[in-house]
């Protein structure tokens, strides 16, 4: 087991009373339980505002959770300080959505890749070691090594994402979180990147947590899919199973819209009863009921 989330909660307050105590909340992540197994890619799908990006940030320790636990390979990391988190940060990295702002435009590609080795300076003390590693990774993402002296603005969106992927792989993480990593690219490039990611998985042996609202893409890369709605996971099953038989009404609406482009007339938002839990409906297909 690689990563386990237990009862994870993160609420953001939106209205504060005069004294600073919050009056109402946005339940970004509401009692989420998830497990990611090594080698089995998990995708979290949902609309914007469903909380999927917040989960990614919680896992990486960029924001702290209000309650709940995060286990990485059995170690509880949900409440560690920045310093204590360091050895774990090496094992998980992220590729962001916007290729235009995830690479600092003032840095050359070499400097960007070098910065990624901050956590593991020991192994990259000589520039020879650095160079070898950058060569290795650039060829893994199918980019030429003569780009090291260039600046991000000289590359297209797809190329920048590849650089971002190379950067994330520099210190050999076990888990790679891709937060809408292909959503801002056009379809042909999306296809290339997905193929690349699958190839890399074979060669480097890591696991992906893929966050997206694009079901077509998600289908190609994940073993398991979790559907999020308003901070809760409403359905969780293997890719095959969920495409064959979506059970929760929200999932059905999502799939109808995404695959058949059918707009579903939603009278009002789906209500989620307070005591709803994910229940196995057979075949390891969990639905919130």
């Amino acid at each position: 087991m690689l990563l386990k989330l237990k009862g994870l909660k993160k609420y953001f307050s939106i209205k504060k009373s005069m004294w600073g105590t919050p009056k109402s909340f946005v339940r970004a992540v509401d009692e989420v339980d998830l497990t990611i197994w090594a080698g089995k890619n998990l995708s979290i799908v949902g609309e914007s505002g469903s909380g999927k990006t917040t989960i990614a940030r919680l896992i990486l320790g960029l924001i702290t959770c209000d309650s709940g636990q995060i286990f990485f390979e059995g170690n509880e990391i949900g409440h560690l300080s920045n310093k204590d988190l360091r050895p774990f940060r090496q094992q998980m990295q992220m590729v962001f959505q916007d290729p235009y702002s995830s690479l600092d435009p003032r840095f050359t590609i070499y400097e960007i890749l070098k910065e990624a080795t901050t956590l593991n300076r020991y192994h990259f003390q000589t520039s020879l070691a650095m160079h070898r590693r950058t060569e290795e990774l650039l060829s893994a993402v199918q980019l030429k090594t003569d780009i090291l002296n260039r600046y991000p603005h000289e590359f297209s969106g797809g190329e920048r994402q590849r650089i971002a992927i190379a950067r994330a792989l520099m210190i050999n993480p076990k888990l790679l979180i891709l937060d809408e990593a292909v959503s801002s690219l056009d379809v042909l490039v999306q296809e290339q990147i997905i193929r690349l990611l699958l190839e890399i998985q074979k060669n480097f042996g890591l696991t992906y947590l893929f966050i997206s609202h694009n079901l077509r893409v998600v289908r190609k890369i994940s073993h398991t899919i979790a559907v999020m709605y308003k901070g809760k996971i409403v359905e969780l099953a293997s890719t095959q199973e969920i495409f064959r038989n979506p059970l929760h009404p929200y999932t059905q609406e999502l799939f109808a819209a995404a695959i058949h482009y059918q707009p579903v007339k939603r009278i009002k938002d789906y209500e989620i009863p307070e005591d709803a839990v994910l229940q196995d409906t057979g075949n390891e297909h969990f639905v919130l009921q």
Partner: peptide
Amino acid sequence: RDYVLAAKTMGLSDFQIIVRHILP
């Protein structure tokens, strides 16, 4: 900005981030 978040995930200290990524 995303590159600031990326720097955080890569383990840079706050001061390093301010001086290397924000002030420039």
